[in-house]
């Protein structure tokens, strides 16, 4: 019994386990209060498979950005520009396909390259010139969005994409929303990078001890560059999925997404000071926010008030602060115990 108790306490100290519990409770509450039977006797609301797939569909773009940000934040960096880069990449994709007349596949490939280049701008300034990431990406946050606006003169919206492309954002493949597969592949790849490679180890060391990393002979500049270029590339992938989901590409795509993504990463247990964190944690963080946001919109009382957005924002904030406070208490307990 005692060993079981100790095991339980040890497990509860792990942030991921706590977050998983939060997620289960959340899901249970919404299942209970958000599922109703309409007049014709059909089950509607949170408990339906369609709704669950909706949650998944809506979480892919912010989820991709959160995955992209996890390595960056592990290095004790930050990338505020991913949401703006998403917008820029959406516009670039629209122009390549519509204005330049490229086939959709080629346009998508070049959009990923554009994302990587955007990330490379951050990488050059952060890794090359050793400027603070917060300031650098605050700059590119405005720069990328401004470029997107300039390219479209703030007015052009690209639509009428071919069905083959829209399949990516609006259909299902092998039983799941198509973009969920992209998300899962990205999660697996970034998970392996962070947890199974020397580069992932280097992200952490940079977060814990930037000087120590240099003294250990690690490739500091290269490691930082990988994190930021990867973030840019994944932001471009998110741009493609976003465009395919809503069927149009315009300059304001992904506005404010960077903050949701950072919230998910931190909620997932990654320390904003770097070093600590995990990709599974980020996935749970994304899920907790997505379920909250979509679940609220299924509760009849919330629907009547027409306040789902506002309540979601409020509760997400509360959840984040609660997670941070619990984390701090857990740390304090560890030092004493």
């Amino acid at each position: 019994m005692r060993r079981a108790g100790e095991f339980l306490r040890g497990a509860l100290r792990r942030h991921e386990v706590l977050l998983l519990l939060v997620l289960v409770v959340e899901w249970g509450l919404f299942y209970h209060y958000g599922t109703t039977v309409n007049r014709r006797g059909v089950v509607v609301g949170f408990g339906t498979l369609d709704r669950q797939f909706d949650v998944l569909r809506h979480s892919c773009e912010i989820g991709l950005l959160a995955l992209a940000l996890t390595p960056v934040i592990l290095t004790a960096g930050i990338d505020l520009s991913v949401g703006s880069l998403l917008g820029l990449c959406a516009v670039v994709f629209g122009q390549l396909w519509h204005d330049a007349g490229l086939p959709v596949g080629a346009a998508a490939g070049l959009t990923l390259v554009a994302g990587a280049l955007g990330g490379a701008v951050n990488a050059g300034l952060v890794a090359g010139l050793r400027l603070p990431p917060l300031i650098v990406t605050l700059g590119t946050y405005s720069l990328f969005r401004g470029l997107a606006e300039a390219l479209t003169r703030g007015a052009v919206t690209y639509t009428d994409f071919p069905a083959g492309f829209l399949f990516l954002g609006q259909e299902r493949w092998l039983g799941l929303p198509t973009q969920a597969w992209v998300f899962l592949v990205a999660a697996a790849a970034i998970g392996v990078l962070v947890h199974r490679t020397v580069t992932g180890r280097a992200f952490r060391v940079l977060g814990f001890a930037p000087e120590g990393a240099r003294y250990a002979g690690l490739a500091v500049g290269r490691t930082l560059a990988i994190a930021y270029v990867l973030a840019g590339t994944v932001a471009a992938a998110a741009a493609l999925i976003y465009t395919a989901r809503i069927g149009q590409a315009k300059a304001d795509a992904g506005t404010g997404y960077e903050l949701y993504a950072i919230t998910a990463v931190v909620l997932g247990g990654t320390s904003i000071f770097g070093g600590r964190g995990s990709v599974p944690g980020t996935l749970l963080g994304v899920a907790a926010i997505a379920v909250l946001k979509n679940g609220l919109a299924t509760i009849p009382a919330v629907i009547r008030l027409n306040a789902a957005e506002e309540m979601a924002g409020l509760l997400t904030g509360a959840l984040l602060l609660l997670a941070l406070a619990l984390g701090a208490l857990g740390q304090a307990g560890k030092v004493e115990g």
């Binding site: 060391v205 814990f208 001890a209 000087e211 120590g212």
Partner: peptide, 9 residues
């Protein structure tokens, strides 16, 4: 402590 080892690792 700053350069020789990474304390958290």
């Amino acid at each position: 402590r700053r350069h020789g080892v990474v304390l958290e690792l």
